[in-house]
Computed example of a mutant assay.
Amino acid sequence: MNWNITAGRPVYVQLIEQLELALVAGEFPPGSRIPPVRELAADAGVNPNTMQRALQELEGRGLLQAQRTAGRTVTADDAALRALRRRRAKALAEEFLHQMQALGMEESEIEALLRESAPPTQEKE
């Protein structure tokens, strides 16, 4: 996993966001085991206590499950993962629209820009 921790925001919040992205992107498939806290912390270059805090938050959100002897696993609840993907996508869309409006763009201009920027769709035969 590629970690991107920057200054200015709480580290555990950034860890939560990046772990959520990994979950919705399928980097950790539903039901799969998450690497141990110390391993994740070493990979991210953070204190294990900080990583533990982030993982506990994801457990509290129902995205991870603690298994007594097997560590943590990703929830097998597809609905929870779909809801997470939708929330993340909505937040990105809102931020995009906010930035475009800050540039003075109207809704029609934003829509045209998106259409121009989208890759061509492949028609099924």
Rank of each mutant, 00 (worst) to 15 (best):
G104D: 05
R38P: 14
T69M: 05
T50M: 01
L81Y: 04
I34H: 09
H98Q: 13
V37A: 04
A80D: 04
L114Y: 11
A91C: 03
R88T: 13
Q99T: 07
E59H: 07
E20Q: 15
L19P: 09
Q56N: 13
L92N: 11
I34Q: 03
E106G: 12
R115F: 15
A66L: 11
L81S: 07
E106M: 09
L84A: 04
E95R: 10
L40N: 03
I5R: 09
N47Y: 12
V37P: 08
L113K: 03
P35N: 12
R38S: 09
S117V: 01
R87I: 00
G71L: 01
F28E: 01
A112C: 03
E125Q: 08
D43N: 05
R85Y: 11
L55E: 05
M105T: 01
I34A: 01
I110S: 02
L114P: 00
L84S: 00
A102T: 12
A102N: 10
R61I: 02
P35A: 03
K124M: 10
M1Q: 14
A70Y: 13
I5F: 10
E20W: 04
M1D: 12
T121K: 07
L114I: 15
R33P: 04
V11H: 07
A76I: 15
A83Q: 06
A22S: 10
L103S: 03
V46N: 00
A22P: 06
Q18P: 05
R115W: 06
E109Q: 15
L113W: 13
T50P: 00
V37M: 08
G104L: 02
E109W: 11
A7T: 14
E39W: 14
M100F: 15
A44I: 07
A112H: 10
K90N: 10
R72M: 02
R86C: 01
Q14S: 04
E116W: 05
L58R: 06
P120E: 13
E106K: 15
A54L: 03
H98W: 12
V37W: 01
Q101P: 00
P120N: 01
A70W: 05
D77V: 07
E39F: 12
L63K: 01
L64M: 04
M51K: 07
V74W: 05
